[in-house]
């Protein structure tokens, strides 16, 4: 087989997201990740619910199913459990996954079904034109919160981690290179994977993530987590998050002479990941990258191992005891 390119994963459908929408960049990263993995497109199934991001399946050339609001995860679960050799991923939004579909999300993580959930978080219901979502920040003004939001926002990665997801990551829509790598690792991971992608909506939340993107502010408001490295951030690379007595704190230091007791990140350390995933601006920079990654046996693996060798020759064998004959 020839080496695949991102274009091999395109469909022939015109993309209808708003010009400037963060979804374009995410689409490119996912197509690149699939190309790098090098598996035929027919082995992928993309399942989505309802929302802007959920139009995603129409824009890739794999098998795809655009389902109903909140229900992409159970549909994907049915695909994966009935045919575990397929690579099944869900594209969803903050409202679709965490509000109407919240029950399915928590149970998919709990049972560790091997589907990958890419949650495009624009912190708003955009398709329905601007209502507060479960990730809309406290105090934000939206069409349904004209006086300011009095609901508290979910912290999606902390939520996913608390339920035991074996792969948890957070990234920014525009980071093509980093995202391609994260998405690839997510797609080839064996169990459930949760990836929160902060995605700007040009219509309703155009400036929502500006502090994480602007050259002037991004270094002070983002910390990129990397295994084996300290949690250093700041324009001058002179700040770090360190954890002492289970308490995260920011220290400043001389860039040329960093202290020797900096906290080194380890994405397989659940307690460390839990603390880091809980950090939010403005007190702390926003952690980005692969927050947690461990091997955990998937639901479908356990299912098929538990029934291995069980076969029925005919219906009588299915029914078993209690069969009698009338002659």
């Amino acid at each position: 087989m020839n080496k695949l390119t991102a274009n091999d994963f395109s469909s022939n459908v015109t993309i209808k997201w708003c010009p400037g929408c963060g979804d374009y960049a995410i689409l490119n990263s996912i197509k690149r990740a699939m190309a790098e993995i090098g598996m035929e497109k027919e082995k992928y199934v993309v399942v989505s619910g309802i929302g802007c991001s959920s139009r995603f399946p129409y824009y890739v050339g794999t098998y795809g199913y655009h389902t109903i609001h909140g229900r992409a995860i159970p549909v994907a679960t049915g695909v994966k459990l009935s045919n575990p050799d397929l690579s099944v991923f869900v594209v969803t939004g903050d409202g679709d996954a965490m509000s109407i579909g919240g029950n399915h999300l928590i149970h998919a993580i709990r049972r560790n079904i091997g589907i990958k959930v890419f949650m495009f978080n624009n912190r708003i219901y955009a398709l329905t034109k601007g209502q507060a979502s479960p990730t809309t920040l406290f105090g934000s003004k939206t069409k349904t919160t004209p006086e300011g939001n009095i609901d508290n926002a979910f912290n999606p990665i902390n939520f996913a981690l608390s339920l035991g997801s074996p792969f948890v990551a957070r990234c920014l829509d525009i980071d093509l290179e980093i995202n391609t790598s994260i998405f690839k690792q997510a797609l080839i991971s064996s169990g459930f994977a949760f990836i929160e992608i902060l995605q700007k909506c040009v219509v309703f939340t155009d400036n929502e993530f500006e502090i994480f993107k602007s050259q002037n502010t991004k270094d002070d408001f983002i910390v990129n987590v990397e295994d084996g490295k300290p949690l250093i951030f700041g324009k001058n690379k002179n700040k770090a998050i360190v954890i002492k007595d289970y308490t995260p704190q920011i220290i400043e230091f001389d860039k040329n002479n960093p202290p020797s007791n900096l906290t080194i990140y380890d994405s397989s350390n659940y307690i460390l990941a839990s603390i880091i995933s809980s950090l939010l601006p403005p007190e702390f920079p926003l952690p980005l990258g692969i927050i947690y990654k461990v091997n955990k046996r998937s639901y479908e693996d356990m299912y098929y191992s538990s029934v291995k060798g069980k076969e029925y020759k005919n219906l009588e064998e299915v029914i078993g005891d209690g069969i009698y004959e009338i002659r």
């Binding site: 399942v47 389902t67 995860i73 049915g78």
Partner: peptide, 19 residues
């Protein structure tokens, strides 16, 4: 498959049918 609710139950079956 014992699903988490009635909606998930039918949706999983729809997914299996798609597959």
């Amino acid at each position: 498959f014992q699903a988490e609710d009635e909606i998930a139950a039918i949706c999983a079956s729809i997914g299996a049918s798609f597959a």
